[in-house]
């Protein structure tokens, strides 16, 4: 049963992340997830200091708020200072992350937070944190519920907002000339990414979140030239990575998140070599 929950958790994260990640890589903002997963640290610390609890909801709110702030700062530096997006991402997240570290060290006596725990949540722990109602009913791991709700939010956002996401991702400037609020779509996407990143890395760790945001979409990008197919394929690759990754981890008796990430990378490598359209081998063959 634990194994089932591990795979389910991994898959829920994988689907949410790879759907959103598809839009991120097309917007050339793939690493924004990495940025968010680090930059939320001060949000978590501040929420903890204010609330003096380690309850999840205030921390989530603090983290999500800083996630959105991260994307606002990235956009601000990019648009106003005309920095390249990658430079702007780098500046923003190192700065905010450092702020979080300073807060933790300054209030060391009061903060009972482990940075490793914040950044590298452990998927193996998910099945242990069960949601048991007052009546004693066991509803399964708490995280699975949270991630499930998040996935529904992501799916609804992409289904309802598909047109807006499509046109602004293709060409923000053109969308603006038609009268479409490009900023609204940018920040809606970034807020959803922020929410997803925050709830996901709490359960599976930052590395796996970043991997799922980037690697399955990149793999799907090599295989198709249709956006809906790309979305479907990247979700599929994400789930396959979760399943095979769990098997690999059991076999090696090693880190589950590490194994899932490695499988996702392996799938990319295979696609890179053997993809019928862009694969290296095919190109060599037809040269």
């Amino acid at each position: 049963m634990n194994e089932f929950y591990t795979i389910l958790t991994g898959s829920l994260v994988a689907i949410s992340c790879s759907l959103l990640g598809s839009f991120l890589i097309l917007r050339k903002m793939a690493m924004v997830g990495d940025a968010i997963s680090h930059a939320v640290l001060p949000g978590i610390v501040i929420a903890y200091l204010l609330g003096e609890t380690r309850e999840m909801i205030p921390m989530l709110i603090g983290a999500a708020a800083f996630g959105v702030l991260t994307t606002v700062l990235i956009e601000l530096f990019h648009k106003k200072a005309r920095l390249q997006t990658d430079a702007s991402i780098g500046i923003t997240f190192t700065f905010l992350f450092a702020l979080g570290i300073i807060l933790i060290s300054a209030f060391a006596g009061q903060v009972d937070l482990d940075q490793d725990c914040v950044l590298y949540g452990d998927i193996a722990m998910v099945p242990l944190d069960l949601w048991i109602t007052d009546a004693g009913l066991n509803l399964g791991p708490r995280q699975v519920w949270i991630l499930g709700v998040n996935l529904l939010v992501v799916l609804a956002f992409i289904l309802i907002g598909y047109k807006g996401l499509f046109i602004t991702t293709f060409h923000e400037e053109y969308a603006a000339t038609v009268g479409i609020a490009a900023g609204f779509w940018h920040y809606s996407l970034m807020s959803t990414v922020s929410l997803t990143t925050v709830v996901s890395f709490e359960s599976v760790g930052a590395i796996l979140v970043v991997a799922f945001l980037v690697v399955p979409p990149a793999t799907a990008y090599l295989l198709t030239e249709k956006l809906p197919v790309m979305l479907g394929l990247s979700a599929l690759f994400g789930v396959i990575s979760a399943i095979l990754g769990n098997m690999l981890a059991t076999w090696l008796d090693g880190s589950i998140a590490g194994a899932m990430t490695a499988v996702a990378g392996g799938l990319f490598l295979l696609t890179f070599l053997f993809s019928p359209k862009q694969g290296i081998l095919m190109r060599l063959k037809f040269r």
């Binding site: 097309l26 047109k163 499509f166 046109i167 991702t169 293709f170 053109y174 969308a175 038609v178 009268g179 479409i180 609020a181 990008y221 198709t224 030239e225 249709k226 956006l227 197919v229 790309m230």
Partner: peptide
Amino acid sequence: FPANVMDVVLMGRYNP
């Protein structure tokens, strides 16, 4: 970008 010709032309019909 993963889109075909029709997808792009249809953008002309998007209404805010």
